[in-house]
């Protein structure tokens, strides 16, 4: 990611905004189709999704720099969101890993390893009732 400072970790559930990349598509609850390489997010891309009736924060997942304390999910020194998700689903480190382009810098993978990858598809930014 060109706008990401060196050493900064990547949030796999970032807002859809310029500077982010398209991580994947939510095919169904708990199922993400990961895209490699990740298309960069531009206003044109977001406009295209809107014009085609695709709710980006529900049917798409974006990745961007982890904002740490600027994010409501930040819990002291770590991402509280993936901690809650892993607490809910438990350790699932035997799952086959998808081909995910951001794993090397992923905040969630850094905290929970393969268990984070197994739980990652369960997350959306907005459920239907939030639209």
């Amino acid at each position: 990611m060109s706008t990401q400072p060196k050493g900064c970790l990547t949030c796999p559930s970032a807002p859809p905004e310029a500077g982010s990349v398209l991580l994947g598509i939510v095919a169904a609850p708990g199922q993400i189709v990961y895209i490699t390489p990740n298309p960069p997010v531009t206003q044109e891309l977001l406009d295209t999704f809107e014009q085609n009736g695709i709710p980006p924060e529900n049917r798409l997942r974006f990745a961007g720099p982890c904002m740490e304390h600027k994010c409501m999910q930040w819990a002291g020194t770590r991402c509280g969101l993936i901690d809650r998700v892993v607490d809910h689903f438990g350790e699932r480190d035997d799952a086959e890993l998808p081909k995910c382009r951001i794993r090397n810098t992923c905040r969630w993978f850094a905290q929970h390893g393969r268990t984070a990858c197994a739980s990652c598809p369960e997350v959306v930014r907005k459920p239907a009732e939030a639209w």
């Binding site: 807002p15 904002m67 600027k70 409501m72 459920p127």
Partner: peptide, 11 residues
């Protein structure tokens, strides 16, 4: 989704 409140990164 609502039960666990797993709505990603809110700035």
């Amino acid at each position: 989704w609502s039960k666990v409140n797993i709505h990603g990164g809110k700035m």
